[in-house]
């Protein structure tokens, strides 16, 4: 217990990096996932094919490889830099990798939601003269989102926990890295380990409860 108290400030600082990553990736992955699902259901074959290829490649690549690719491939080899400050640069590279990865799951959750919206809704939208993207945005997606609030919550929880893989992308600040670093000096410590688990649960459990509650509240009566 003593080591947990001693290293708590460091661990907490690390955990705040997990939270920062989570917030950025939640926004980016939801936006990108929505764009991807629009491509996947669009009437244009090229967009559909591009969306499908993206999902099949990214969703089936291990996250550590996606993050290693953003650090080594995008940054070191291709020269993509977000910031001159290495830690900040790594933060954005990891955010990019994790968002790109999570977006594929957001997309597929949304697509299953779209499949629950009856075809008649889209036909009625087209019949009053809405274009494809208007009907997607105003009629289909709002109903699809409501159906998949709970599964999207699960995707977000998985993403939050995945922030602990950030060191694979060269971002050496978040709590799992701090824990590993601490263990190197103090040896493995069960209280530290459990402390981090509890910290994650403090964030993820409410998300689970909130999204379940929201799913019930938003359910569209048909």
């Amino acid at each position: 217990m003593d080591e947990l108290i001693k290293y708590a400030p460091d661990l907490l600082r690390g955990f705040l990096h997990n939270v920062q990553l989570s917030v950025v990736c939640a926004i980016l992955s939801l936006v990108l996932g929505t764009v991807l699902v629009s491509m996947r259901v669009s009437p244009t074959p090229v967009l559909r094919a591009a969306g499908t290829t993206y999902i099949n490649v990214v969703r089936n690549t291990p996250l550590t490889l996606v993050l290693a690719f953003s650090a080594l491939g995008l940054s070191d080899t291709l020269g993509l830099t977000f910031s001159q400050e290495p830690s900040s640069n790594a933060f954005w590279l990891v955010s990019l990798g994790l968002s790109v990865y999570t977006a594929s799951f957001v997309c597929e959750a949304l697509r299953s939601g779209i499949n629950t919206v009856s075809l008649g809704q889209a036909e009625a939208a087209r019949a009053i003269g809405l274009t494809f993207f208007q009907s997607l945005r105003m009629i289909i997606l709002p109903q699809a989102f409501r159906v998949v609030v709970a599964p999207l919550g699960s995707v977000m929880i998985a993403m939050i926990k995945n922030t602990t893989v950030a060191m694979a992308g060269g971002y050496l600040a978040e709590s799992a890295f701090v824990m590993k670093d601490t263990f190197d000096t103090t040896g493995a410590s069960i209280p530290i380990f459990l402390g981090i688990v509890v910290a994650f649960m403090v964030v993820t459990l409410p998300i689970g409860f909130f999204t379940s509650w929201l799913a019930n509240r938003l359910a569209v009566v048909r």
Binding site: G120, G129, I139
Partner: peptide, 29 residues
């Protein structure tokens, strides 16, 4: 889309927009 906006359609299964109010259904177009 413009053509469709000039041709009204009433479906067997109504197809009202389920997440919009009655008035919103009528004013959306």
């Amino acid at each position: 889309a413009k053509l469709r906006s000039e041709v009204g359609m009433v479906f067997q299964s109504f197809n009202l927009f389920a997440h919009k109010t009655i008035l919103e259904n009528v004013t959306l177009g």
